[in-house]
Design a protein around this nucleic acid. Structure first.
Lengths: 191, 191, 191, 191
DNA sequence: CATGAATGAGGCTTCATTCAT
DNA sequence: CATGAATGAAGCCTCATTCAT
């Protein structure tokens, strides 16, 4: 049983490395098998097809990210506090997981994405709910949730990508400033 | 001569459609040829290989975007005005060119991108220069140019993508609000 | 394991037939596969490419010839005896292996040959050594080894080619006479 | 008219260079055209097909060689003298025309040769006739003409090939010795 | 469960030849 | 006569997937 999990994981981990390195279509199943130290045939015990393997990898990576990102104290933090926590979680996860980041980007910008659009929406509901509440309370400007998402979390992801790609170097001081800027943008302007 | 240009363009246009629709590796050259109404062989008169065709398409699309986006009155607008103009140009271009947008995303998140990294940096220099000037003048907060880019232009691109994908609907009013929010974020907080 | 060898051999044998019959470039891999009773793809398990297949075939054929040709009793024959034995071996091998002969000719007169020039020189060393010894002993005229080679072995090959091509018919009597003529030429003239 | 000849010759000369350099099947017609400074289409005014071009090149090269090689004073030289002259002519032509030599080898060892087998036999008749006469006169050993050919002319060709390939260096002294050896072999042994 | 040889459809690319200009 | 863009058949090779062992 442990072995099964190990082998399945070995395949997924190797796939992540290779898919990021070579792209989806320059990564033959046989190479994944070889690098994972398993036979080509056994992959088909764990995954129906290459497509299913990639989808599964996406689901696992995405699931893990969402779990970690949403690890905020929804009870004791007010909505803005929650959002700040989520924002930081997001940045830190992406910045410290370059392979996962690249994989997600590649996947979500490929035709594959059509197959699991909105699959994770429900898990993001709590965040959306809190955000709507804050909007009603006048703590956040009144824009569609998706727009607010891009203004805040979306920027965290973009910055983390650049950081982990080595294009920019973001230290804690800059992060504080950026975070402040973000929240300045989504809060109502002071009169 | 005109014919040559026509055929070359027909190939590029068809390629854009199909690559966006099916992805780079599910778009056979033979299909591009067929849809473009030319023979399979002729593509290789105009492009050395499939890879070169895609790279060329990227260069043309990217070049056009940069030209249009930078169409601002650098003489008569102050730096922030320039940035606002560029911001709007960016949003409008991406929002009204969904195929180009999807293609760029796909390309820039694929291993292909390594082949023309920084190829267009020089053209963006004017914008960077103006931004630096505004930073020194205290009109924009002091953050690395790449960070400021993500906070402003990056968001325009993200929103335009969502808009053209039909995920959200952004009307002029929302656009104004977003624009204001963006510029609130990158300007120094009022004391 | 036996099967692997069988299939690899089947491919090589079929390739020999077809390459000789049609020439290197009029022998598609697909035809080799078909005639060998295997799928097109499997050839690439055993050989990296068509070129590698041909090179490998050359190596195997050449290796076999050299082994058989050098099968002489280097211990109990004097140098001239050795050379006579080698001369006969050469003639008989080529005369009785028309396909191998044609293949070698085709290969060694094609640009491919550049890839394995001198690859078999070391194995011919013993013969060269004996010949040099005979030269010093005054039993063979003092000419460069390569020249002596053409005067003797080279002629055996040429004759065998003509014989196996059906252009001439060489019986044992003629062979004796030719052999004598050859050795008359490379021995010092009687004074 | 002169131009026509020029263009045809330009094509043949270029073809010779390229065919020798790259082999028959790695020499596209378009490359021949380009290197010859003509258009791809015009080749088909002078030659029906690629095959016909190669055959024609073969015929011209072969014809020239035969003419030059047979340039001996058949009237005033006895048979052996004729043969010696022909032998030297052969050696010198091949040794000083490496491209033609390589082309002939390549051609004559390819399936193409089937198309013009024996095409030049009639021109060699005089030589054969003289040789037969010498045989009857007891000046040359009684072996089939083709065998005698290989023992003498064939060796000249082989040596010239090696010489022009740079594998061996044959100076005049060596040439004399070889020539003597050759004729020692085809003359009856002195009793 | 595990292996990896085997399959064969399909992709990219080349190039002899044609033909409108 | 001359051009060279255009055609399209055919070749080499890859690789997702299967299956006998």
């Amino acid at each position: 049983m442990a072995k099964v999990i190990d082998k399945r994981s070995a395949i997924l981990n190797t796939a992540l490395d290779l898919l990021v390195e070579n792209g989806f279509h320059n990564t033959p199943m046989s190479l994944i098998a070889k690098e994972a130290g398993v036979s080509a045939g056994i992959i088909y015990h764990y995954f129906e097809s290459k497509e299913e393997l990639i989808l599964e990898l996406y689901r696992e990576v995405k699931q893990k990210i969402i779990s970690l990102v949403l690890e905020a104290d929804f009870q004791n933090l007010n909505g803005l506090g929650v959002l700040k926590q989520v924002w930081l979680n997001t940045y830190h996860y992406y910045a410290s997981h370059p392979k996962e980041t690249l994989f997600l980007e590649q996947f979500e910008n490929s035709p594959y994405i059509k197959m699991c659009l909105n699959e994770f929406n429900t898990q993001l509901q709590p965040l959306f709910v809190w955000t709507e509440a804050e909007k009603r309370a006048g703590n956040i400007i009144d824009l569609p949730i998706e727009v607010l998402y891009e203004l805040s979390i979306g920027v965290a992801v973009s910055l983390a990508k650049q950081q982990s790609a080595g294009i920019i170097h973001i230290n804690d001081e800059i992060l504080d400033q950026v975070s402040a800027a973000i929240f300045r943008s989504i809060q109502p302007a002071r009169t």
